[in-house]
Amino acid sequence: MVLGLQGYNALSTVGSEGMLGTLIALGLVRELGPVLTAIMITGRAGSAMTAEIGVMRISEQLDALEVMDINPYAFLIAPRMLASLIVFPLLTSVFNVVGILGGYFTGVYLLGLNGGIYLHRVQSAVEFDDLFLCFIKSLLFALIVSSVCCFKGFFTHMRTDSAGPEAVSKATTSAVVLSCILILVFDYVATTFFI
């Protein structure tokens, strides 16, 4: 909705308010959708992954798995990575749809734009390549977030700056920060690669 407001104001200065649908659809599908979804999932689920695995590490649960000859990578990390690969594209799609509807609400109901034109612009602007880029980015971010968050938790005991519960909290913070930075870096790399 904010994108709708800002976009409308910017476009109206050059008399192109009708392009609001294009701006919102492409902005969301190509960039904001995958990036913001990934950052939100990092804050919600990524931090939980690090904290949970970190607690398992300091409470010897991972050692217990090893003693039982259960591979902790296959038992703990692989399912989380797989789940991320499924969920990231789905939530990114939801984000995109909600974002486009929010732009519609702002543009049409609050700013008086023609609803038909908005939807036509959305439909004509978004091509298969844009959706493909969005899908690839969400998969890439799923891999980044799940691997960074799982491994930060898994190696909590190897932190040199802290130990025990403090190490878990620091690992969680560091996993979220590193994931967010990597999301932005790889977003640039992916965009460069595909454009």
Partner: peptide, 29 residues
């Protein structure tokens, strides 16, 4: 190592499983 069982200081039970599933884990795996 499979010939060894170990009792950890606080039990080291997996928090996401109930006792039966914890104990069954080596057999299921």
């Amino acid at each position: 190592r499979r010939r060894m069982g170990m009792l950890f200081q606080d039990g080291a039970l997996l928090g996401s499983m109930n006792l039966a599933d914890n104990v069954a884990l080596p057999l299921r795996e």
